[in-house]
Every structure is written in C-alpha cells, then in structure tokens.
C-alpha cells in the first residue's frame, strides 16, 4: 500500500495525464482496476479545441506533442467521463489547468463535490499554451495557484512540475509550502523538429513537449534532486517503458511513478510494469 496525501494506492503505478485518455480507450488491453491510479487528460473550465495539426511528431526514442489541452471542459467531463472512471475500482486523479489561480480554484471546488474524484493533479507545467511563460516557471505563481486550490478542496493535491526551469527543487518547495500533498515530475521538455524538405517546423505550433525514453536520464536526475530535498511524496515519470525503468525512479526516491508515452506503444504495458515491480519488491524482501 502506498500513501500519497489521503490516497491509498494498491501499487505505485499510475498512468500519466494525456496519455491514457479517460481510461475507457484502454479497457480492451488491460485490467484497469489493477492500476495504482488513473490520471485523466487535463481538464479546463471551458471546452478547448487544442492546437492546429500536425500536433505530434516522432523523434529518436521519443515524441514531440503540441496537443494544446484539447478537452471537453469540466462539466462534460463530469457528466460523460467520470461515471465510467468511478466504476473501475481504482483511484481517480483528475488533472486540471487554468489560466490563473482563480480558474484553478473554481475547477477544484467543482471537483471537490464529486465523491468519485480521489485526487487532483495541477498541470501548471503544460508548455503548449500561448501565454507569457508558465506558472511552473515562477515560484510565486506556483505558490499562488497551489494555495488557491488548497483553500478550495480537502482532496489530495499533486502539483505537476515542469522540467523547463533552472531550479526545480525551489519550485517543488514552493508547491509543498503552499499545501500540495505531493509533487509529480516531469512534464515534457520543450523541443522542436524541422523538416528539411519543407524547411518548416514539423509541428504547426512550432514547438512541442518532448517525452518518451529519450528524456529518462534527465527526468530521473530531477526526481532524485527533488526527492532528497522535500519531505512530501514525489511521483516520478519520464520515459518509463519497463518495470526496470520504473524501479530506477523508485530507487531515485520516488514513491510512485507515472507511465506516459509507453501507453501509445504498448497499450497493455502498465500491467507488465506492475508485475515486474511486484516481483522485484518480493525478491528484495
């Protein structure tokens, strides 16, 4: 049993926001209730169309994405997606994002009323929105958002950090001081790819977030740095493709992990990772 805030997880493996849809997409490929927790695609107050196409591009051992938080908005999410998630029998963590602290707080208040929501992940680090910088790059803004959400709900709050910063430990500390129960990291690294035939960027948004196995060593280093400097639980992610990868994160100090891009490559992969970690834990003890 793994404890994160008020969450009690049956195992340390969660699926990462934006890489598992609303879980139903994967029901044919694995037993969903075996997952430690499900983190939903990031939800906003109003529906969002997302960025223009092309939005994804493969890179060496990774991918770039600029989806742009396409989602149906909080009310449609609660009416159409949440009932299915609630019935699965595992913890449901809803990822939310807003344009300011007030929007985050409204989202959290709304979710606070839903019994089937077990936790809230704050996506303050999505690199795809055309704003000046990111909340996650500014200690004060991070503090302000987390504090507002803390006032709005007693549910477990996980703050998801961006790796596109100079001092990730500093931001993590701000989130914890403002009342976050845990931090998760990393979100994607800002990157780009140019098509030399058209001489144009491959993504319509020009830049996008890099994920997948190519980011793992950097993500692992950041998780290790944060874990040794804060007291709250750290949830590690970035390029996990196997139980061995996940175990590296646990050894670096993460209490749980999230699996992202790997779900696209092998939709049933989380079950394998859970089994692998279980075997490793038993062998060790």
């Amino acid at each position: 049993m793994i404890t994160i805030g008020k969450l009690k997880l049956k195992n340390p493996v969660m699926v990462a926001s934006g890489t598992f849809g609303y879980a139903r997409e994967f029901e044919d490929f694995l037993d969903l209730k075996k997952l430690g927790a499900i983190v939903t695609k990031t939800i906003t107050l109003k529906p969002r169309q997302g960025n223009p196409m092309p939005r994804i591009c493969e890179t060496a051992s990774g991918m770039l994405n600029a989806i742009g938080l396409q989602n149906e908005g909080i009310e449609n999410f609660i009416n159409e997606k949440l009932p299915y998630l609630a019935k699965i029998g595992t913890s449901v963590i809803v990822s939310i994002s807003g344009n300011n602290a007030e929007e985050f707080s409204r989202l959290a208040k709304r979710l606070d009323k839903e019994k089937s929501v077990d936790g809230i992940e704050l996506n303050i680090s999505c690199p795809n929105i055309q704003a000046k910088g990111l909340v996650a790059q500014c200690p004060d803004a991070t503090y302000e958002v987390v504090e507002a959400v803390r006032k709005a709900t007693d549910k477990t709050i996980i703050t998801k950090l961006s790796p596109n910063v100079t001092d990730i430990v500093g931001i993590a500390k701000c989130a914890c001081n403002a009342g976050s129960d845990a931090v998760s990291l990393v979100n994607t690294f800002l990157g780009m790819v140019i098509d030399i035939n058209t001489e144009k960027p491959k993504l319509a948004n020009v830049t996008g977030g890099l994920s997948g196995p190519c980011i793992k060593p950097i993500a692992l280093r950041m998780v290790w740095e944060v874990a040794k400097n804060i007291d709250k639980p750290v949830i590690g992610m970035g390029g996990i493709m196997s139980a061995e990868d996940a175990i590296e994160f646990l050894l670096a100090g993460a209490k749980a992990v999230q699996v992202g891009t790997a779900n696209f490559v092998e939709p049933g992969i989380c079950e394998k990772i859970i089994k692998g970690i279980d075997k490793w834990t038993k062998k060790k003890s």
Binding site: G18, T19, F20, G21, E25, F26, K41, G50, M53, P54, R55, I56, C57, E58, M63, N65, I67, Q70, T261, N263, F264, P267
Partner: peptide, 12 residues
C-alpha cells in the same frame, strides 16, 4: 494522419 496510439488516446 500521423498516429501515435491508434486508439483515440493521444489526440494527435
């Protein structure tokens, strides 16, 4: 279209 997941999860 370029596809990552093929099952409606990535929105790519």
């Amino acid at each position: 279209e370029t596809m990552a997941c093929g099952i409606g999860a990535c929105l790519g």
